[in-house]
Amino acid sequence: MTDAPVLEVDDVAKTYDVSAPLLQRLFRQQQRTLLTALDGVDLELRRGEILALVGESGSGKSTLANILVGSLPATRGQVVQDGSAIPARRDKELSRRIQMVFQDPYSSLNPRLTVRAMLSELLRVHDIVPRSEVRKECLRLVSLVGLDEDALDAYPGQFSGGQRQRIAIARALAVRPDVLIADEPVSALDVSVQATILELFASLRDELGLTILFIAHNLAVVQHLCQRVAVMYLGRIVEVAGTDEIFANPRHPYTRALIASIPRMGDTSGAADLVPEGEPPSPYDLPTGCRYHPRCPFAEAQCRELDPSLRPLSESAGRVHLSACLRASDLPESP
């Protein structure tokens, strides 16, 4: 892995217009209602790494993923790939470079296409290999994800959940992307199948040098697979650091709450005090100051006024540790 960013997310924001239809609004004299899903996200993905994106449900992880693959326009900000900003309308070549794998292997594949038909179509449209080599390339792709040649002539309905997820990965890899965005790719799988898919992601990184953004809720999985972790809260990245560093030395109170909430295999009751009480604030009406202050056990007067940005904190093993907490350096030692 090198530290050169493949992908940079620069101040990306996304608001959804969730207003009632215009006529109804005029009639009831209502304002437009905007929901802020992303509120100035900065993030970089380094070549050959698996970066975890974790955070509360509704914090904007999937919204960011959809913006990265170009299936959703950003309201503000830009995505920069290898130094140049990706335009709002991507051509075939640009859309090839970032591919997505979804949580639900059942609904993300066309049930009426055999695996071979699906892969060959993609290979032709994107001109990945000469026509004469399409057959061979299909075979290479299924073996890359650990399936037999027989899989090529079967339909998605004939596969188990884990096998379907392999097919979804093969489809994403067919166009030889630089970056893979995986949105909760193992959440729906049994532990044993999950283990084999995690192994597959690790080998894609180690053998093909693929860069992967891995969205997940299970922090034991994240710790096992990922080199760095980015934590999201209410539309912002609030902490980024190397995996070992962030779990040993979390420097944002929300990250501490996440870690305290991990269900453990051993007999640990965790630091229950850190688990946030109540629900996250409404994304229609973000709190002033630090957006975590209504739930933060370390909040001070300044936290209600100042909106902290994501700033470098210290160097850990040559890699930067970022936190968006005003008290990042004077938080008590984590338990």
């Binding site: 532990v191 299970n218 070992d244 453990r264």
Partner: peptide, 11 residues
């Protein structure tokens, strides 16, 4: 089942 699941306390 135990051997196939990652355990946060055994990184």
């Amino acid at each position: 089942l135990l051997d196939s699941a990652p355990d946060f306390d055994q990184p």
